[in-house]
């Protein structure tokens, strides 16, 4: 369990900015699910729970999710269930139990860029931007490709469009980490195929996505595209599954996701 020497509870983002400038090593407290697994000594901790970041806000064009929104709030949010075939609520609903999801926050889940994440593939399948205190707003895909730097993630912004989305995952046991997951989306004629928990971080299968986008429906079958995705991406082994198994299962999950989007 971590220990905290001093705690700051700012009420506005400009106060947060001042604190981050004053204490470059400040530690943001999310829901503490991961933090509490370490025995870190935290000299200066930052609590964002008074900064109005605990809300999901729907505008005409976007759904904005504050960094302190819990995974359970996402699971139950009517707008997120209504849009994108409910892919994001579906993805978070596999993470441990209801009580845990009422603690863990979306800001930490995205900021930490976990390889096993159920959330990142689903968010990558959407038109998602992240808002960082110092780094400003950028597409999630760009944020994920950068090394982790000291910053504070304040919001996630998803464009409301009529895309169809499917999220698939494979686990050895119900509440375990996924050993592989995939998300597929189709917006107008553009397809996106994402595979995560390889066990490396979720990544877009660019070539397979292009193959599917450029082919008129019926000329390339979902199995061929799924095979292309499994050949394009790298897979590794760990105590949950071997690289070979992941590569084989990638074909199953991607094919299933494409067919669900087409259904």
């Amino acid at each position: 369990m971590f220990t905290i020497e001093s705690l700051h509870q700012p009420q506005t983002l400009s106060e947060v900015k001042q604190l981050v400038e004053k204490y470059p090593d400040i530690t943001v407290l999310g829901g503490c699910g991961f933090l509490k697994l370490s025995s870190r000594k935290i000299p200066v901790a930052l609590d964002l729970s008074r900064c109005e970041l605990e809300k999901i806000h729907e505008t005409e064009q976007h759904i904005e999710i504050g960094a302190m929104v819990t995974l359970r709030d996402i699971e139950k949010n009517p707008a997120l269930n209504q849009w994108f075939d409910g892919a994001l609520p579906k993805a978070v609903s596999h993470i441990l139990g209801v009580q845990f999801r009422s603690c863990a926050t979306i800001g930490a889940s995205v900021y930490a860029k976990y390889g096993f994440s159920d959330i990142l593939p689903a968010l990558l399948a959407l038109d998602t931007q992240v808002e960082l205190l110092r780094g400003g707003r950028m597409p999630l895909v760009d944020f994920l490709s950068k090394p982790i730097t000291r910053d504070v993630l304040t919001r996630i912004v998803i464009t409301k469009d009529k895309r169809r989305v499917s999220y698939q995952n494979l686990r050895n046991a119900g509440a375990d980490f996924p050993l592989l997951n995939a998300a597929v989306s189709k917006h107008d004629a553009e397809w996106k195929i994402i595979v995560g928990a390889r066990p490396a971080r979720a990544e877009i299968a660019v070539q397979a996505s292009k193959l599917l986008t450029s082919s008129a429906y019926g000329t390339v079958d979902s199995g061929t595209v799924a095979m292309a995705a499994s050949m394009e991406l790298a897979f590794g082994s760990n105590n949950k599954a071997s690289a070979e198994y992941r590569q084989a299962m990638c074909q199953v999950l991607v094919k299933r996701a494409i067919e669900e989007v087409l259904a």
Binding site: Q99, F100, S102
Partner: peptide, 12 residues
């Protein structure tokens, strides 16, 4: 709402 009290900071 059910939460894990082992993971919830008291001040929150």
């Amino acid at each position: 709402k059910p939460v894990l009290s082992c993971t919830m900071l008291s001040f929150r």
